[in-house]
């Protein structure tokens, strides 16, 4: 038996191992990066979704900025109250509670498609090329860009091709708002439960022709509102959320179903898969 090979192997691995370990030890010392422990703690307190709602490129970047004391501790929206409190505690800021927000889809179209679109399946791309796919040119395109960009997976497309928001998962970060090229999605306070489900600025008769649920600017809602919270601008009803008390009177009188009331459905227990 050739013991030479055994000795040679042990020597080879021993020497190589030791040499490489030495190189790595030296490199570790020489290329050490000073880690701010505060930054690590802040990073641990954030939601960790890297969604960019705070305005920074990722959770690590925001943690760095907060630890440096440059920005308020409340910018992490998916982290919500708990994250804001924890971060504020860590960096020594005082904060006030902010209202919970949720995404709302302002379109309930019952409209026929005006063209047969088979291009890139992205609302932004489609808007850039054709402007609108349905008879009503303000309508939601239904290609699902908002659903794709949502970092919490809270939006999905219904059978009618309209986005549906899962209010349990929605954190109100607002990325869908930026993604929608038509301005169909907005972020409102969760406490506000009545919304106008139309964006059509067409004249009443024209809008009604194009979509069953269009706002025809008839003004019945304005009259019905006790808080004078509704105004008609550009043939479209707009609710002033500062005045609206979500009483639902406008919903009952609207002839086309352009205003919707989430009140009953939010109080009801819903099944979420």
């Amino acid at each position: 038996m050739d013991y030479g090979i055994v000795i040679a192997s042990v020597l080879a691995l021993g020497v190589l191992g030791a040499a490489f370990a030495l190189v790595l030890a030296i490199a570790n010392a020489r290329f050490a990066v000073k880690r701010d422990p505060l930054e690590e703690k802040v990073l641990a307190a954030l939601a960790g979704t890297n969604c960019g709602a705070c305005g920074y490129g990722g959770c690590a970047a925001y943690a760095q900025a907060v630890a440096a004391g440059k920005v308020p501790a409340t910018a992490c929206i998916p982290g919500g109250g708990p994250a804001a409190k924890a971060v504020a505690n860590l960096v020594g800021q005082t904060i006030e509670p902010r209202e919970q927000q949720v995404a709302v889809v302002h379109c309930n179209r019952e409209s026929a498609p005006s063209i047969d679109y088979s291009g890139i399946g992205d609302c932004r791309a489609a808007t850039a090329i054709v402007g609108g796919v349905y008879e009503c040119r303000f309508a939601c395109l239904g290609l699902g860009t908002c659903a794709r960009v949502c970092p919490s997976g809270a939006i999905w497309m219904s059978d009618k091709g309209l986005p549906v928001v899962d209010e349990e998962r929605c954190t109100g970060c607002g990325i869908c708002v930026k993604a929608c090229p038509k301005g169909i999605v907005t972020v409102e306070r969760r406490a506000d439960e009545v919304h106008v489900l139309c964006r059509s600025k067409d004249k009443g008769a024209v809008a009604r022709e194009k979509c069953e649920h269009a706002c025809i600017a008839c003004g019945l809602c304005v009259k019905a509102c006790n808080a004078k919270a509704i105004e008609i601008q550009d043939f479209l009803a707009e609710i002033d959320y500062n005045k609206c008390v979500s009483c639902g009177e406008c919903v009952a009188v609207c002839p086309t179903g352009a205003i919707g009331d989430y009140r009953k459905t939010r109080r009801r227990k819903v099944d979420v898969a």
């Binding site: 309930n108 928001v165 489900l197 352009a258 009331d261 989430y262």
Partner: peptide
């Protein structure tokens, strides 16, 4: 999946 959907008139 059912979620909060608004009731219209």
């Amino acid at each position: 999946r059912a979620a909060a959907a608004p009731l219209t008139s």
